[in-house]
């Protein structure tokens, strides 16, 4: 039987239980629970409304930096005492904190490229099925003609232009299937190019194997 999530072509949350893996690839032996001794920017808890609590409970980039500097000072003191194991511990801790400082400012994929957003196609209403809805506003395309029109991404998913543009200004993927679209982000471009080079190199290796076998 098709589930609710299949019917709506959504990701099934039962299959998508991956916690945030910001530090999954830092293979450090030490993984301290920083939050217990995290210095807070705002310690006046009485002034917080419930709305702000969620937002301020996340340690920010500055928190990690300050903590890294603090341990840096400890490390210099340890160096004088010559305790190598302890120094290594502090080195790992500092590296991890700096990683966190870099990662905590980023939330998901980079913005789609300006030219991609500018050149989004206009899709005539007759091209979408009668009960198709835009998954961002949940509104049926046919009943919602007043908007700036309908568009589609290269993966063939349809959206109201008004709905998809704010998303693409933040992230370069399709909200329905996560298919990537171009980005101007230099880190993304480099990663993409490296992946292509790696693929090219792997293919060249296969050719070589074939030639000499």
């Amino acid at each position: 039987m098709a589930s609710y999530f299949d019917d709506h072509s959504l990701e099934d949350p039962y299959k998508a239980r991956r916690p945030n893996n910001n530090n999954a690839n830092s293979n450090s032996r030490f993984n301290p629970d920083l939050s217990h001794f995290m210095p807070r920017e705002d310690t006046d808890e009485t002034a917080q409304t419930p709305y702000q609590m969620g937002a301020t409970s996340m340690p920010g980039e500055g928190d990690f930096r300050r903590l890294a500097q603090l341990f840096g000072t400890f490390r210099q003191r340890e160096e004088a005492l010559g305790d190598e194991e302890h120094q290594e511990f502090l080195d790992n801790l500092i590296t991890q904190l700096m990683d966190e400082a870099g990662a905590s400012g980023k939330h998901g994929p980079p913005p789609a490229s300006k030219s991609f957003i500018r050149d989004l196609p206009f899709v005539p209403l007759k091209e979408v099925k009668r009960d198709d809805a835009c998954i961002i506003c949940n509104e049926n395309f046919q009943e919602n003609e007043s908007k700036a029109g309908i568009t589609k991404l290269p993966c063939k998913h349809f959206f109201d232009r008004d709905c998809i543009v704010p998303w693409l200004e933040l992230h370069n993927n399709c909200p329905a299937c996560r298919a990537e679209v171009p980005s101007d982000d230099p880190v993304w471009i480099k990663k993409k190019r490296d992946a292509e080079l790696a693929k090219y190199a792997a293919e060249a290796e296969v050719d070589e194997d074939w030639m000499y076998s």
Binding site: H8, S9, L10, E11, P13, A16, R17, R18, P19, N20, N21, N22, S35, M53, G54, S57, M58, K106, H107, G108, P109, I135, I136, C163, W167, N173, P175, A176, R178
Partner: peptide, 20 residues
């Protein structure tokens, strides 16, 4: 998080999409 109740789940952060 034991004290704040904060949840570490990718779909609430980097993997969020409006289809949720």
């Amino acid at each position: 998080h034991f004290k704040t109740g904060e949840i570490c789940l990718d779909i609430l952060k980097s993997e969020w999409t409006p289809s949720w």
